[in-house]
Amino acid sequence: MSKGMGRVADNRWMMLWGAMDLAALLLYAVSSVYQGGIPVAHDIASGMAIQQRHGSMLPLLVSILDATLLLSMLLSGILLVKRSRLGRYVVIAQLPFRILLVMPSVFFLAHMGWAGFSPALLMVLMALGELLKLWSLWGKRRRSDGSGRDGGSGQ
């Protein structure tokens, strides 16, 4: 594949992953409003209420981490759709939090549990989705000639 064709494929992957982040946020916001809440604010308020009832900071911490991840998904979605290289770095930073909070990049996997899919199968699919995302944004950018340098223009 020529260098130009490789960039087109890379751009398509970036746009796909960016669109998936933005679609996940849209689905989250619509669902939250439909249930009578304000996206993010309702989640943090729920975490605070649980913390006050039970005395544990963990629910509030998880709510804050979740809100931070959601905001970073907005950032990564926009950056990836715009095909900014910075979006790839945001994706790397998100990865541990996506796994910890079980918020897959292939966003519809998070909703397949309601359809009776096994939680173990969903976790395997999530891991495969995250590996595909990493490979498509980072791994396949390496030249096949073994030089170890990016196939990009160096910008």
Rank of each mutant, 00 (worst) to 15 (best):
M1R: 14
K3P: 07
K3M: 07
G4E: 11
G6H: 13
R7A: 10
R7I: 06
V8L: 09
A9P: 05
A9Y: 14
D10Y: 03
D10S: 04
D10A: 03
R12D: 01
R12E: 02
W13I: 13
M14V: 09
G18V: 07
A19E: 09
L22P: 00
A23V: 09
A24R: 08
L26W: 00
L26E: 09
L26T: 12
Y28P: 02
A29Y: 11
S31I: 07
V33N: 04
V33R: 15
V33P: 02
Y34I: 14
Q35Y: 15
P39W: 01
P39A: 00
A41I: 14
H42E: 13
D43N: 10
I44G: 01
A45L: 06
A49L: 05
A49N: 05
Q51Y: 08
Q51K: 01
Q51T: 04
S56C: 03
S56W: 05
S56Y: 01
L58P: 00
L60G: 00
S63L: 00
L65W: 02
D66C: 00
L69E: 03
M73C: 02
M73T: 02
M73D: 07
L74R: 09
S76F: 01
S76Y: 02
L79P: 06
R85K: 11
L86T: 14
L86R: 13
L86H: 09
G87Q: 04
Y89H: 06
Y89P: 11
V90Y: 05
L95P: 15
I99E: 09
V102T: 11
P104C: 03
V106D: 10
V106Y: 01
V106M: 11
F107N: 10
F107Y: 10
F108L: 14
A110L: 08
W114R: 10
A115Q: 15
G116P: 08
S118Y: 12
S118P: 13
P119G: 00
A120D: 08
L122V: 09
M123Y: 10
L125C: 12
L125Q: 03
L125Y: 13
L128Y: 13
L128S: 13
E130Y: 12
L131A: 15
L131P: 03
L134V: 14
S136M: 15
W138L: 04
G139K: 10
G139N: 06
K140S: 04
R141F: 02
R143S: 05
S144G: 15
D145Y: 00
G146E: 08
S147L: 15
S147W: 00
G148D: 15
R149I: 07
R149E: 06
D150S: 12
G151M: 07
G152V: 07
G152Q: 07
G154V: 12
